[in-house]
């Protein structure tokens, strides 16, 4: 059993391949998380405009990406766009797909955060002469982020896990490298190794989150 699932010789042989994948996963996360946050911030700020011409398209946009599987979006970009003469490569496709998909999720979270800050906060800021933008930047957003921190972290966890989709469009992240190694060795060890790495990487965050979420739900009553 250990031979097939956790073979030390194979681990030694494929370690460099898997390690390169891990580094790419970290790198990819460091790019797509800020991208998604940026997308989300844009959406959340747009949502503060209460005009129906902004509101309805915005809601449709968010619902669209909540309904659309990220992998389908990714494949659409990767396999569809070349037919329109646009070959972006796996990496760019992942970046765009994440900007759109995770941006919609981050946007919903940040919107809820902004709505949770009482209107009196903006009024107090404006009464001291701050502009709308300044009041948003210095007063509302810091409180909004703090109020929805567990949700932001939970979504970030999902985004990091989602980078594994890169393997479908040949981005050499952890899962992709592990599958390469698996096809070289005809052995399940590389996949098991990748799973263990994901677990060790993300477990601390899951633990922390489960504490935060328990508290958040309790205080909703």
């Amino acid at each position: 059993m250990i031979e097939t699932f956790f073979n030390p010789e194979i681990i030694a042989a494929i370690w460099p391949i898997v390690l390169a994948g891990l580094l790419n996963t970290v790198l990819l996360s460091l790019i797509v998380v800020p991208l998604g946050l940026l997308g989300g911030l844009i959406l959340a700020l747009l949502a503060t405009v209460h005009h129906p011409l902004v509101r309805w398209p915005l809601m449709a946009w968010v619902d669209f990406f909540r309904a659309f599987p990220p992998l389908v979006l990714l494949v659409l970009l990767f396999a569809g766009l070349p037919f329109a003469g646009l070959e972006l490569g796996g990496f760019a496709c992942v970046a765009i797909a994440f900007f759109l998909n995770t941006g919609a999720y981050y946007g919903e979270i940040l919107r809820a955060g902004i709505e949770s800050v009482p209107a009196g906060q903006v009024e107090a800021g404006r009464s001291t002469g701050l502009s709308r933008l300044q009041a948003m930047t210095y007063i509302v957003l810091p409180q909004a982020v703090r109020n929805v921190l567990p949700d932001l972290m939970s979504n970030t966890l999902e985004v990091v896990k989602l980078t594994s989709l890169g393997s479908v469009v040949a981005v050499p992240e952890l899962l992709f490298q592990a599958r390469q190694a698996q096809s070289l060795t005809y052995n399940a060890t590389p996949i098991v190794l990748a799973a263990i790495i994901y677990f060790l990487l993300l477990w601390p965050m899951v633990r922390l989150l489960s504490r935060l979420e328990n508290r958040a739900l309790a205080s909703r009553r």
């Binding site: 059993m1 097939t4 699932f5 966890l157 896990k161 989602l162 980078t163 594994s164 989709l165 393997s167 479908v168 899962l175 599958r179 698996q182 052995n187 399940a188 996949i191 098991v192 990748a194 799973a195 994901y198 677990f199 990487l201 993300l202 477990w203 899951v206 489960s210």
Partner: peptide, 19 residues
């Protein structure tokens, strides 16, 4: 909660046959 779903799928589909 820690493992990406795709990793679990690949693990079961490509890993279990070895067992």
């Amino acid at each position: 909660r820690s493992l990406p779903p795709l990793v679990i799928i690949v693990l079961i589909y490509f890993g279990l046959p070895a067992a």
